[in-house]
């Protein structure tokens, strides 16, 4: 049971959502955008989150779209992970989403929620970082298109009141060779010790990591420059570029996470090396 009270709004348009957010916060009250609700409800239940109003964006058509248009794949921020898996328009994104939580949770968890929620893993952002995806953001000044790293870089970067409308993926990357591997402490369904997703683009391999640090990130390597005779050295080079301390928590020590990551990178080199 959620012990505190709040107001509930379900706008039908982006403009209504932005305006109601402005109205609520203008009264010095706290409003949050709401989509799947899994994180908001579970955190509210234990008083880790509080607010005066939720603005449920699931009725906004632009936030619910999933379609290919010209050379783009467009996915609304309120589209649940199950729909993304079933749509099948971007195999790597489908593979990553299919390992987030479990099926019924994926019926509720949305792409926007996974990217912008409190959870540190945000695995669904990896395929988007790897493909230089863009996002549509709406605010009081209207809608604008931005690179995804303008709304997430170590942490969510949206300004107060800004609404993530959709994610735009360039189809030129969608059928590139890719890999995905998620390692958990014990159970198949768990948060990741380490998740690695990668895309090969010409001679470049773009690698996304989740679970290794407290935020997901991307590193690129030039595959042709890899010294196959000394993979240990290549992996050290990659690990030296990890942008933050390796997580050390109850799921796994930093040393174990590094060990798992090393093995995943060896698998990754073998996978792409085998393709060559």
């Amino acid at each position: 049971m959620i012990t505190f009270d709040f107001d509930y709004y379900r706008p039908d348009t982006i403009e209504e959502a932005i305006n109601v957010y402005k109205k609520i916060t203008g009264q010095e009250k706290k409003a949050i955008y709401y989509a799947g609700g899994t994180e908001i409800v579970s955190m509210s239940r234990v008083n880790q989150l509080s607010f005066d109003s939720v603005i449920d964006i699931k009725a906004i058509p632009e936030c619910n779209v999933i379609e290919t248009k010209d050379d783009k794949l467009i996915i609304g921020s309120a589209v649940c992970l199950t729909r993304i898996c079933d749509f099948g328009g971007y195999p790597l994104l489908g593979a990553v989403c299919r390992r987030i939580a479990e099926h019924t949770a994926r019926d509720m968890i949305t792409l926007g929620g996974n990217i912008l929620g409190k959870i540190q893993y945000k695995e669904a952002i990896l395929p988007l970082l790897l493909t230089d995806s863009k996002v549509t953001v709406a605010g009081t000044a209207g809608k604008s298109e931005k690179p995804i790293d303008r709304i997430f870089n170590e942490k969510p970067l949206l300004n107060a009141g800004e609404l993530l409308v959709n994610i735009i993926i360039d189809k030129k990357y969608i059928n590139n060779p890719y890999s995905h591997s998620k390692k958990t402490k014990q159970e198949k369904i768990d948060y990741p010790l380490v998740t690695i997703a990668s895309v090969k683009n010409d001679d470049e391999i773009r690698i996304g990591f989740s679970g290794l640090c407290v935020y997901p990130f991307r590193l690129d390597i030039i595959f042709g420059n890899i010294d196959n005779t000394n993979p240990e050295s290549e992996i050290n080079n990659i690990l030296n570029r990890v942008p933050a301390p390796i997580v050390n928590d109850i799921l796994g020590s930093a040393e174990y996470r590094e060990f798992v990551t090393r093995n995943l990178l060896i698998d990754l080199f073998n996978y792409y090396g085998g393709m060559n």
Binding site: T38, D56, T104, M108
Partner: peptide, 25 residues
């Protein structure tokens, strides 16, 4: 808390966790 799914109901034919969904939703 959305972990066990004993509370599963169908919303427009799809299973959802009723413990993690607001009634107003």
């Amino acid at each position: 808390n959305g972990d066990c799914n004993s509370c599963t109901v169908l919303l427009d034919g799809w299973p959802v966790k009723s413990c993690l969904m607001l009634a107003v939703e």
